[in-house]
Nucleic acid binder design. Structure first.
Length: 548
DNA sequence: TTTAGGG
DNA sequence: CCCTAAA
């Protein structure tokens, strides 16, 4: 299969078909194939790659705005330019992505993949709202009058700024100087930085602020109540914009966010699962309420400490540094557990040096709310998995990884000093969608219960998944798949699906396989796992209608 | 060692 | 994910 994500602009409906009605056909060609080919399947599931020019983003803002003419006309006539193009689907995919995906190329062309994250979960909840507000205010006074209008495509104020002023703004925003004199470059970074500020504060609003107004310098800018994730973004945006812009910007953002929810934004769904849905999600959360045994206690303490207050000075850390650190943490090796327990973990605590980074990109995972790899289905982690060497010494975790230890907290220091038992626990590694696919294929080949075999077959190169992990994941998938059924009845279609975590089609397949292979491996035909023809034949024959 | 299942 | 009883 030579299909790449770029080529295959396949809609989700089509994907669903592949896994459901057309499952048997697809199965022949896809799942009976070699692993490499099988992985290729995942291209079908991947959303169109979201890499666009920054100008495009700005254009989108305008475009969105123009759709809001009626609402925001009076407030921000100046924002309404000629651009009326509706943002494309790909462009809105942006919002599902963590901002650390952003890559800033040199000089002018800001190639951005997935900025615009209106999502809320990724922001650190422990950031002092007051401090942040103050900080931002300070920043504004010093340099950011210009930044207010950065969302405007033409960035007129930025354009007017001298290099010195840009420098000042830069250092104010990122806490360090830059020697770059290229105005484009500076503008680019400032735009990005401003954007991140906004993101960062969005999280605050959701977590700590349910209120409706915000005071800056005596002025009170309005924002709607946090009745939705979208509107939650409003309040602090307002901090950054001046009075005249406030409303329009807010509306913009709100609209943006609302649209975003149409995509299966992982963050949104994550939030929702915390707050909105009590039904099926309870299944997930309830499990976490048990008392952690033994070693867990210590580690959960660490986890908690991640939510402690951080020095707001950390905000100054440049995003690039943040990302580097994230990567360095993630890249630590994990040995395959031999016999009992996991191998000792090497934590590279030094990279954090006590002061933790403000990570506007990572999602502060509320422990327990990520049963499955939520957003990976919207992201490009397929690519990550493919890119990883077969040998896979390093984690193939997508950068958007939500593993908890990616979010550094002060707990890291503690852990560093007491190099004790804490290292035993295998840190949560989000299952990537490709891993799930591999698991499913493995089950379809070998049957449920033969985890060791599946591990050998499908995950031989992956040192981080043990047969037990596979088993656990399968159990979770099953749970999710059935929970989804119930969820479907309750939730109307217009609503966001809480179980966006795994595509419906995939869950269907899970159910299918679960009926195909009742949990005791009573595989009627002892199919040799390598014989694809046998496999497919048997698979087709066994397909059992769902008994709901 | 591997599985199954509870936590 | 972890832990452990059974197989």
């Amino acid at each position: 299969m030579n299909i790449t994500s770029k080529d295959s602009l396949i809609t989700s409906d089509e994907i669903a078909n592949m896994f459901t009605s057309k499952f048997s056909e697809v199965d022949l060609s896809l799942f009976a194939a070699s692993e490499q080919e099988a992985i290729g399947v995942e291209h079908f599931l991947v959303e169109p790659k979201c890499a666009i020019e920054y100008d495009e983003i700005k254009a989108d803002f305008n475009a969105v705005h123009s759709n809001l003419t009626r609402e925001a006309q009076e407030e921000t006539p100046e924002l309404l330019d000629g651009k009326t193009r509706l943002p494309t689907c790909e462009e809105f995919t942006l919002d599902a992505k963590p901002a650390d995906e952003v890559t800033i190329l040199d000089h002018g062309s800001c190639k951005v993949s997935c900025v615009g994250n209106v999502g809320l979960g990724r922001n650190s909840p422990d950031f002092h709202e007051r401090d942040s507000a103050a900080e931002i205010s300070n920043m504004s006074s010093a340099s950011v009058p210009a930044l207010e209008s950065t969302r405007n495509q033409n960035s007129p104020v930025l354009d007017e700024m001298t290099v010195e002023e840009l420098h000042e703004a830069f250092s104010s925003m990122f806490g360090r100087e830059t020697s770059v004199t290229d105005k484009q470059w500076l503008k680019c970074h400032l735009l990005f930085g401003l954007h991140n500020q906004v993101e960062l504060d969005n999280g605050l609003n959701l977590v700590k602020r349910g209120t409706t107004s915000y005071k800056i310098g005596g002025k009170t800018v309005c924002s709607s109540s946090c009745d939705s994730s979208g509107s939650a973004t409003g309040s602090i945006d307002s901090v950054l914009v001046d009075k005249t812009m406030a409303v329009g910007w807010h509306v913009e953002r709100k609209k943006f966010a609302d649209l975003d929810t149409l995509k299966t934004s992982s963050e949104d769904s994550k939030i929702d699962s915390c707050s909105l849905d009590g039904g099926d999600e309870a299944l997930v959360t309830q499990k976490r309420q048990r008392k952690p045994p033994k070693r867990y206690i210590e580690e959960s303490m660490e986890d908690k400490s991640r939510y402690c207050k951080r020095k707001n000075g950390d905000c100054e850390v440049f995003y690039k540094e943040s990302r580097e650190k994230l990567l360095s943490v993630r890249s630590r090796k994990r040995l395959y557990p031999k016999g009992f327990g996991a191998a000792p973990m090497v934590c590279q605590d030094k990279s954090f040096k006590g002061s933790c980074i403000q990570v506007p990109f990572g999602i502060p995972v509320e422990e327990g709310h990520t049963e499955t790899d939520t957003s990976s289905w919207n992201s490009e982690d397929f690519k990550d998995d493919r890119l990883s060497s077969p040998n896979e010494e390093v984690d193939t975790e997508p950068h958007s990884a939500r593993s908890q230890d990616d979010i550094c907290g002060d707990g890291f220091i503690t852990r560093g000093n007491t190099q004790k038992v804490s290292s035993h626990r295998k840190h949560h590694i989000s299952w990537t969608s490709s891993e799930v696919m591999k698991l499913i294929e493995g089950v379809s080949r070998c049957g449920v219960g033969r985890w060791a075999e599946i591990k050998r077959l499908m995950f031989s190169s992956s040192s981080r998944r043990t047969p037990v992990d596979l088993k656990d994941k399968w159990r979770n998938l099953l749970r999710a798949s059935y929970a989804q059924l119930q969820c479907k009845r309750k939730v109307k279609q217009g609503q966001k699906q809480v179980s966006n975590q795994v595509p419906e089609s995939v869950l269907w397949r899970v159910r299918e396989l679960s009926t195909t292979y009742p949990y005791q491996r009573e595989r009627k035909f002892k199919v040799s796992c390598t014989d694809s023809s046998n496999f497919s034949a048997s698979t087709n024959n066994i397909l059992v209608p769902l008994s709901t």
